[in-house]
C-alpha cells in the first residue's frame, strides 16, 4: 500500500469536495443567485442614474460578494461534522492543516470562483468601463480566496452551534474589512487614473499572509470545536 503524500492528500480532498459539490449543485447555485440578486437590488434602491451607479458599482459588487461568501461558509465543515467524516479527518496522519487547505481551496472553487466569473456581467449592469471591470475581476480573484480562508476559521469556531450561520458572519465580516477596502480601492484608483498596483499588491500580501496562517489556525479551531 502506497503512502499518500501531502500533495496527494491535498488533491484528494479538493477532488472529493468538488465531486460532492457537483452532486449537490443546488447549494452552489443558491449562493450565486443570492449574489446576483443582492447586486440587482441596489439600482432599485438608489435609483438608476448611471453616474451614481458607476461610482458605487465596485462597492456594491464587493459587499454582495462578501455577503454571498458568508452564506456558503456554514457548509464548509458542517456536513462532514454531522456524518462523522470530520472525526476521520482529524485523524489524518499527514497534516490536518494541509487537509484544511484542501477544503478551503475546494470551497473557493465552488463558491468564490463563480462570483468572480459572474462579476463582469453585473459590472455591465452598472455601466462599468472595461478597464474598471478588469481591475474588479483581478481584485476579486485575489480577494475571494482570503474570504474563504478567514471564513474557514469562523466556520470551524462555530461548528455545531445554534445559530452558527449568523454568528459566523458576525465573527468574520469585521475581519474582512481590509479586503473590501483594497478591492474597491483598486477599482476607484483605476477610475480616477491613479496607480492600481499598490492596492492589488496589498491584496496579494494579505492573500499570502492568510495562506500561511489560516489553515493552521482553522485546524486548531477544529480541534477545539471537536472536543
Amino acid at each position: 500500500m502506497n503512502r499518500l503524500s501531502l500533495f496527494g492528500l491535498l488533491g484528494l480532498v479538493i477532488r472529493r469536495d468538488l465531486i460532492l459539490a457537483m452532486r449537490r449543485r443546488a447549494d452552489v447555485l443558491t449562493t450565486l443567485i443570492f449574489f446576483v440578486m443582492v447586486v440587482s437590488l441596489f439600482p432599485l434602491g438608489v435609483g438608476p442614474e448611471p453616474d451614481m451607479l458607476r461610482k458605487m458599482a465596485a462597492g456594491v459588487v464587493w459587499v454582495a460578494a462578501l455577503l454571498a461568501s458568508m452564506l456558503s461558509l456554514g457548509r464548509m465543515f458542517s456536513a462532514d461534522y454531522l456524518d462523522g467524516t470530520l472525526e476521520q479527518m482529524m485523524l489524518v496522519p499527514q497534516s490536518l492543516s494541509m487537509l484544511v487547505l484542501g477544503k478551503i481551496v475546494a470551497h473557493w472553487m465552488v463558491s468564490g470562483l463563480p462570483l468572480v466569473l459572474m462579476a463582469p456581467v453585473l459590472g455591465l449592469q452598472f455601466d462599468m468601463s472595461a478597464q474598471a471591470l478588469w481591475i474588479l475581476i483581478a481584485g476579486l480573484l485575489l480577494g475571494t480566496p482570503i474570504l474563504s480562508m478567514v471564513g474557514a476559521v469562523g466556520a470551524a469556531l462555530t461548528l455545531g452551534l445554534r445559530g452558527g450561520g449568523v454568528l459566523v458572519s458576525l465573527l468574520v465580516l469585521p475581519l474582512c474589512i481590509p479586503v473590501l477596502i483594497f478591492g474597491t480601492g483598486a477599482v476607484d484608483a483605476a477610475i480616477t487614473g491613479m496607480s492600481v498596483a499598490s492596492h492589488l499588491l496589498l491584496l496579494s500580501a494579505l492573500l499570502l499572509l492568510a495562506l500561511v496562517f489560516t489553515p493552521w489556525v482553522t485546524a486548531q479551531a477544529l480541534r477545539i470545536s471537536m472536543e
Binding site: R3, L4, L9
Partner: peptide, 15 residues
C-alpha cells in the same frame, strides 16, 4: 467504492 477510497486516503494510504 468512492467512499472507501476517500476514507483510505484520509487514513494516509492510496488503495
Amino acid at each position: 467504492v468512492e467512499n472507501l477510497r476517500i476514507n483510505a486516503g484520509l487514513a494516509g494510504c492510496a488503495v
